[in-house]
């Protein structure tokens, strides 16, 4: 910025030194592959493995040919449900826990926080297996538990049923990741000055009114950010379904989401062999979905929710 002009006239080697290594790796292994994928989606391969330009025909197949479009729309719809469940369950619970944790002079607050956040640290794969075991009718631990609290008749092999496997998986994921909205919202709540809360108490509002009228509006930007993080993570999810239900996302693709569809398309499964170019096309569509979400957030949601200077 403020360097002597003698340095500025020479080639700025130091900038290159600082920037080049990181940038090189980032561009080679992130930017280029992404662009290359978008490009690859426009090609097809013939029987000999020869690639040729095919325009948008991959996308036509994917969106219009029943053999491809059915799984695609199924996965997209499932993924949307997956996201909606997170928004309706994970974020409200996170908000609720954060509100409790930020009660003034609460003892053990740190301990609760640390423990509740613990599952978030573990690998999704591990968590998937843990719940697979816990919900397994063979082991019967959940069934036994439900009987002990008088709800035994409601037990079912939830993960194995078409009607409930996706919801169950989503709830497992909610259980694991509730710590993230909790932490971020908690931090936002801590940054609200105490005086503001005191002022609203003096103004006569009870705890609920203070939360609703003062705290919530002030943490709205954080909730917006949590939502977009959830969106990106959900439409990029793969591990949980893969670990619990395999690449086929059974039963009968009822738990198929974009990540598993992408994996199957790319690597093939059972009778169908994998296709690099079709895989690239699916990835491109995922990219577009995420891009639209992020853009909506940046240009609509974030604009509306001004950050209030506290």
């Amino acid at each position: 910025m403020s360097q002597p002009s003698s340095i500025q006239r020479r080639f700025p080697w130091h900038i290159l030194f600082f920037l080049a290594p990181g940038l090189l790796i980032y561009v080679t292994f992130s930017v280029y592959p992404l662009l290359d994928t978008l490009w690859l989606g426009l090609f097809q391969e013939d029987a000999t493995g020869q690639r040729f330009f095919a325009g948008i025909s991959n996308y036509q197949t994917l969106l219009l040919d029943a053999a491809w479009s059915e799984p695609f729309w199924n996965a997209l719809w499932n993924n949307t449900k997956f996201f909606i469940i997170h928004m309706l369950v994970q974020n409200p619970i996170g908000l609720f826990l954060a509100a409790l944790l930020s009660s003034p002079r609460l003892r053990l607050s740190n301990t609760y926080r640390t423990l509740i956040f613990m599952p978030t640290m573990l690998s999704v794969v591990i968590i998937g297996f843990v719940w697979q075991l816990l919900l397994s009718p063979i082991w019967g631990i959940s069934e036994g538990f439900l009987y002990s609290i008088g709800l035994g008749q409601y037990f079912d092999a939830w993960l194995g049923k078409e009607s409930s496997s996706l919801i169950t998986l989503a709830l497992i994921s909610v259980w694991q990741f509730v710590g993230i909205p909790m932490m971020l919202i908690y931090a936002a709540m801590l940054s609200i000055p105490d005086d503001l809360i005191d002022a609203s108490v003096v103004d006569g509002s009870n705890a609920w009114q203070t939360f609703w009228n003062i705290k919530l509006p002030l943490i709205l930007p954080t909730i917006g950010m949590v939502s977009i993080l959830t969106f990106v993570a959900n439409f990029n999810a793969f591990e949980l379904v893969y670990a619990v239900k395999g690449a086929l996302a059974g039963p009968n693709f009822s738990s198929d989401i974009m990540g598993t569809l992408f994996y199957r398309t790319f690597f093939g499964f059972q009778l169908q062999s994998g296709s690099i170019t079709m895989g690239a096309a699916v990835a491109t569509l995922m990219f577009l979905i995420i891009l639209v979400g992020v853009m909506l957030y940046l240009f609509v949601v974030q604009r509306r929710m001004k950050r209030f200077q506290l």
Binding site: S30, V31, P33, L34, D36, T37, I228, N236, G279, I290
Partner: peptide
């Protein structure tokens, strides 16, 4: 790169 998952470039 913060928002766009690198996973989408897996093919390449």
């Amino acid at each position: 790169g913060i928002m766009i998952p690198i996973r989408l470039g897996t093919v390449s």
